[in-house]
Every structure is written in C-alpha cells, then in structure tokens.
Simulated assay, not measured.
Amino acid sequence: MKLLVSALETSSNIHLKELKKHLKDDVELFGVFDKELGNPLYDLSHLAIMGFVDAIKKLRFFFKLRDELVDLAKDCDKVLLMDSSGFNLPLAKKLKATYPDKEIIYYILPQAWAWKKGRVKKLEKYCTKLCSILPFEKDIYTKKEMISYVGHPLLDEIKEFKSEISKTNKIVYMPGSRKSEIINHMPIFKELSKKIKEKKHILIIPEKFDDDYIKKVYGDISSFEVSRDSHKELREAEFGFICSGTATLEAAIIGTPFVLSYIAKKIDYFIAIKLIKLPSIGLANIFFEKMGKKPIHKEFLQDEVTVDNLFNEYNSMNRNDYLKNSQILRDYLQGGSSQNVANIIQT
C-alpha cells in the first residue's frame, strides 16, 4: 500500500513513528514527515511555524506544498492527515475535489471543540474516516459513523508512570520546540535555575536541533545539563517548568509535577483570546474540566510568566494531589491509539 502522509508537526511525527510500528511492511510512506521515517518531500525542520504572523509569511510555500501533495496522491492508495488543520484541511478539500473516491483519514483532529467549530462540517465533507484521541470529541460531530475514539497516542509512547512522589534532585526545563517559544522562555528559565539551588537543572532540547541552531537560539546554556530524551527526564525529575504544548500532557500522564507557562507574540495572543473561549490552555486541565474537576496544574500566560510566579508554584504545589490526579487522567484517556489507527488504515 502507498500511503500519502501529511505530518508537519514534531509531535505528529512522534505519533507517526509509533503508528508505523503497527503498519505492515508493504505500507510505504510518501509526502511530508520526519526523514527518519522514510524519504519525505521536505525536511520537517523547515516547515514549523508559530502563530498567525509566521503562517502568513509562509503562505506561498504552503500553497506550493499543497499542490505537490495533491499531485503525489495520484499514485497513492490512501491519505493520512495528522494535526496541522491550517494546512491539512485545505489539503483535504483539494484532495477530495481531485480524487472523489480516495480514502482520506484524519488522525489527531483539529480542536473544533475549542474554536472554529465550522471545521466539523469541513472534516465530515472532505474526509472518509476521523480518528479522535479525545474521549469527548465525538459529541460535536453529526456523522457518528465517520468518527472513532481510538485512544490517546501518548499512552503508546509512555511506558512508565510514577506511583510515588519523586525524591530526586532533578529539575526539568522545556521551553518549547519553536524558535519564538524558546527565545521567550530561556531568559526566565536561566534566572529560575539560579534561584533553585543544589539541584541538577536539565534542559530538554529536541533532537532535530544542531549545535549551531542551539547556540543561536538558546544562547548560553552552560548552567544546564542538556538532554534529548524528554520522557526519561520527566520520569526522573521531581519538577518541571514547561512551555504549553504536548509536553505538558506528557508530564501529567507520567506524574511529574510541573507548571505551564506560555508567552506568545502580542498580536498572536490578542487574536487567540478573541477566538478561543477556554478557561485553560493545558490539555490535562481541559480534560479535567470536561470531567467536572478542578485543574490539575497551574498556568501562567504572557506577563504572568515571571521568575517569582514560577518559583512560588514550585514551592507550593500539592504533589500528593497531583499524583492522584495523574492516575485519574490515564484512566480517562484509556489505551493508546497506534494499533487502532493502523487497523483503520489497513482495512
């Protein structure tokens, strides 16, 4: 089987890597994905964008990429779209118009429950099968036969969980994977590491970044120990300071206490708060709210992201309650999704 894949995000490719383990040997990937999974059209590291402004700057390139993928789909049996709705929904529309009978599978659905609910109709119109990773997501769709709750992929990728409060001396810092996130967080994280004494300060850096990029974007990181293995470090850490994103859910599933921080460009943040009506941005907190429970962790956004606020949360967080909530979260999300999605693709 020839499978056209559009997976532009780092997190999507982590899920794709796990999914590939469950696909038969004769399934060959084409399209956009991490180069360690095959021979993609483009190096994934060149595609990451952050926010509305960055997206506008790269519009011409992404129109070109969409057309290239549509051409490539001609010789593929099925299509797999993962996350990145700003690109993948228009791609799905053009694929459907060009190949009305080709099966289009969407895995890691757009967060239509949070904003832009009109995307639900588009997904139902352009796609064949929808693979949901959130238990409550199915409720907003009308064509129930199209959508399946497949479980959350992180429960495939994370094998070990904490059953007691960590007594290590490691503190983990995860400033994000996008350039603007890193630049915004690193000065604060550096000051914070000086304030928390007699600890090992572990800075998680994505594997895709080379030494030149690290020096340019992260600056002086001599006060940190660098690691590329986020799951290992989260398991061993007593606490984490984490930029909003998939990493916050990873920490919550593993059971590592942490505080979420997020600093966006002012115009991006202004647009986001006008469009997105949610009391929380952390996925674990959103899940708990859906269950009728209080947030599992603290969040600081924009000007609230200060050394003092993060340090005070480190000292005051109730770690026993957090550990109990982590187990509740794992039970809520159920099993991992890789095998289920592989079955859907190969059926």
Rank of each mutant, 00 (worst) to 15 (best):
I328N: 14
M82N: 05
A55L: 09
C127M: 03
N325P: 01
P187T: 15
Q327G: 02
K298H: 14
L23S: 03
Y99M: 05
M146T: 03
K162P: 03
Y106Q: 04
H231Q: 10
K74G: 08
D83G: 08
R330Q: 04
I344R: 05
M1P: 04
N184D: 07
K93G: 02
A73W: 07
K64R: 08
S261H: 09
C127Q: 05
C76Q: 01
S222L: 06
D229R: 04
D211K: 13
F209W: 10
M174E: 02
M291F: 00
A247S: 04
F270V: 08
S11E: 11
D83E: 08
S223H: 11
D54G: 04
Y149A: 01
E250F: 00
Y141C: 07
L260Y: 00
K57G: 07
V53K: 15
I183V: 13
R228Q: 10
Q327S: 12
M146S: 11
N343C: 08
L333E: 01
A272V: 10
L19C: 06
S45D: 15
N340H: 11
G292H: 02
L47P: 06
I49C: 06
S163Q: 15
G336C: 00
A114W: 06
L234A: 08
D54M: 01
R60F: 13
K195A: 12
I196W: 01
P279W: 02
D220A: 09
E18K: 08
D308H: 09
S227L: 11
F189V: 05
W115F: 15
E103D: 12
M174Y: 11
V70I: 11
I158K: 00
S6V: 06
F258L: 08
Y332K: 01
E160C: 13
C131F: 15
G255V: 06
E164S: 10
S132T: 10
I214P: 07
V70L: 03
H22S: 14
F52A: 15
I49M: 09
A251G: 00
L109P: 08
E250A: 04
L80G: 02
G86N: 14
E18M: 03
L155K: 12
